[in-house]
Design a protein around this nucleic acid. Structure first.
Length: 625
DNA sequence: GTAGGGTTAG
């Protein structure tokens, strides 16, 4: 156990170390800019006050909390003016950075003769903390109270804030201002605007800016590829990458990461493999950022084996890489393996964080490891110093609810120190569906519908809960409400990659060129199942299948069509990987299990939340989902 | 040119 010190003792320890250094080398931080001055000037600049300020600036750079900043602040007040060594500006910036927006604003007001850098300290401080409202307020104040024009730093801070919170209107007006100020010649400003439009789902505006840029930097290309990938245009993103290469531009880390994002949207394993080759060819395989993105991507496209292989090849995986691997196991339903990996990573001295615990709790919940999950939840702060967030509460509500403790799940929500979000209520609603609890289900669904009245899924789940417990009137009222609001269920869709193409199927789909063969194969498979006396369970209503769906349509569900197609066109024994836009229904889940047994095939189905691995008649989720 | 710097993994 290490000795605990208070933050201020750490600061003073640091202060004394720094003091020792500056005394020894007699070269204060700010003197960097005076090194090229004449010797007499340099001597002059090394006054006592200057040394003290340099020393305080260095101390300030190490501050990580309000109390650290306050300690430095009080020294400044006692000994020097805020403008000396511009320390006031830096204090403002630091206060904003550590989350003391109030202190930052108050101190800012005390600074005499504010220049552009003073304003930028305040604006960029808020921007880095993600406080768009404060950032914009400061920006407008600067525009109204002074005659100063924003420079590149100001614009970048404000634009990136707009991007973070997807503030399109503000973003557009800053775009207009940048144009009026003639700042659209600045590559960084335009790159930032491209990113902002991308985050606001305005692909057209981003493309237009990219097209008219007089000079494009590597970041411009990277940003454009990322914008395509994020806006459902992954193939355009990949074309953009090819164009960039044709222009003789060498990719860097960010390029590869953007490219990997594009691959994920396409959902093509072949493409991921080819980017894997690009990564190796360009010597990026040793870069943690990229290999982590790669291992994550393999896991997300269903190739947990390849993902694990990449992980094994990383020389010294950091805690993010460990977490990515753990997340892969969790998503694929391998809860025990995820827990084992967690223990190993702690043993190796890695520090688990907020994200690690989210995936760990998720893994416990999906594997029925209720006691382990509870224990990790209880000890994550005390043992690992990780603060509990909304995501952790969602995982715990899911874990408790899924194991049948609906009351405990609800009590946990009531005991939360913060306002529950849609993830938390969604987890409770999901559990109510499994255990047919109309009372709590109604409560959860009402919260969810209030939060987002346009999300059809919540109405459907509630209506299905009502139907299954026989509350037909309530069920039809919900349906009527949906019609009133013009909401419709998203049609189910399955995708499978074969021969350089992604093949898509909807319920009862007959549009595929091999449609006849697919249906013949499907009939044959159903026949085999019947002959073996393994008729699938018909209880599918528990999972969110539209109750109005005619029963004979079950046999034409898109998952079954995709499986039949896969078996028809691939060699015996080949693993089938299928993607779905909705959760798999219970009937198709049983179908996939039996087919994996009688056809001796591994079938992997990815729904929006997780994977199901079907082998020898068993699913990795152990029917617990 | 003190601020802080466009894209960037779990």
């Amino acid at each position: 156990m290490t000795t605990k010190c208070s933050p201020s003792s750490v600061l003073f320890f640091n202060l004394s170390c720094l003091c020792f250094k500056t005394q020894n080398f007699n070269r204060p931080l700010r003197a960097r800019s005076t090194l090229s001055c004449s010797p007499s000037r340099r001597l002059h600049s090394c006054s006592d006050a200057d040394s003290l300020v340099s020393f305080l600036i260095l101390a300030l750079s190490q501050c990580s909390s309000a109390s650290h900043c306050e300690a430095v602040h009080s020294r400044v007040v006692k000994s020097v003016s805020y403008r000396h060594g511009f320390i006031g500006d830096q204090l403002v910036s630091k206060y904003a950075e550590v989350g003391c927006e109030g202190h930052a604003g108050k101190l800012f007001d005390e600074i005499p003769e504010k220049d552009l850098v003073s304003w930028n300290s305040l604006i960029s401080g808020f921007s880095r903390k993600g406080c768009l409202a404060k950032c914009l307020y400061a920006f407008h104040r600067m525009r109204n109270e002074t005659l100063m024009n924003p420079n590149e730093v100001t614009l970048l801070s404000v634009i990136s804030s707009c991007a973070d919170v997807k503030a399109l209107d503000e973003g557009r007006s800053i775009h207009g201002l940048s144009e009026r100020l003639g700042m659209l010649t600045e590559v960084k400003v335009v790159n930032s605007l491209i990113n902002m439009y991308g985050k606001c789902a305005k692909l057209g505006a981003a493309c237009q800016l990219f097209e008219i840029m007089p000079v494009r930097s590597l970041v411009s290309w990277n940003s454009m590829i990322a914008v395509y990938a994020e806006n459902e245009s992954p193939t355009e993103g990949i074309d953009c990458f090819k164009l960039m290469r044709r222009n003789g531009i060498q990719p860097d880390d960010a390029t590869l990461v953007a490219l990997l994002q594009a691959c994920e949207s396409v959902g093509s394993i072949r493409l991921v493999e080819s980017v894997h080759c690009v990564i190796c060819r360009h010597g990026f395989y040793g870069r943690m950022l990229i290999v982590t993105a790669l291992l994550d991507l393999y896991a997300k496209t269903g190739r947990l084996d390849a993902s694990h292989q990449v992980f094994l090849e990383i020389r010294n995986p950091d805690s993010i890489a460990w977490t990515a691997m753990l997340a892969g196991y969790a998503a694929h339903g391998y809860g025990l393996e995820a827990v084992t990996l967690f223990k190993l990573m702690v043993k190796k001295g890695m520090k688990p964080d907020r994200v690690t615990f989210t995936h760990l709790l998720n893994a416990c919940g999906h594997a029925g490891l209720v006691e382990e999950g509870k224990r990790y939840f209880r000890t994550m702060f005390g043992l690992y110093g990780v603060e509990t967030t909304l995501d952790h509460y969602s995982c715990m509500v899911d874990l408790l609810g899924r194991s049948g403790s609906l009351k405990d799940a609800y009590e946990l929500i009531r005991s939360m120190p913060m306002e529950p979000n849609s993830g938390v209520w969604g987890a409770l609603l999901g559990a109510c569906r499994i255990y047919r609890n109309a009372e709590l289900g109604k409560l959860a669904a009402e919260h969810l519908i209030n939060m987002d009245p346009s999300d059809a899924r919540n109405y459907i789940v509630l209506s299905n809960i009502y139907s299954v417990v026989g509350l037909w009137k309530e069920a039809s009222e919900i349906r009527a409400l949906m019609k009133e609001n013009c909401l419709a269920r998203l049609p189910g869709c399955s995708y499978i990659e074969h021969g350089n193409k992604i093949h898509q199927f909807v319920v009862g789909d007959q549009s595929h060129p091999l449609s006849r063969g697919i249906y013949t194969k499907l009939t044959e498979l159903i026949g085999k199942i019947r002959k073996a006396g393994l008729a699938p369970k018909t209880e599918f209503i528990l999972h969110d299948v539209d109750e109005e769906l005619k029963e004979d349509m079950i046999n034409e569900h898109c998952e079954k069509l995709a499986i039949s197609f896969g078996i028809l066109v691939t060699n015996p024994g080949r693993t089938l990987i299928i993607r779905k836009n909705l959760r798999i229904c219970g009937d198709c889940h049983s179908f996939a299990k039996i087919i994996s047994l009688i056809e001796k095939r591994t079938i992997i189905i990815r729904d929006p939340k997780r994977f199901h691995h079907f082998t020898d008649g068993i699913c990795s989720c152990a029917d617990y989902w």
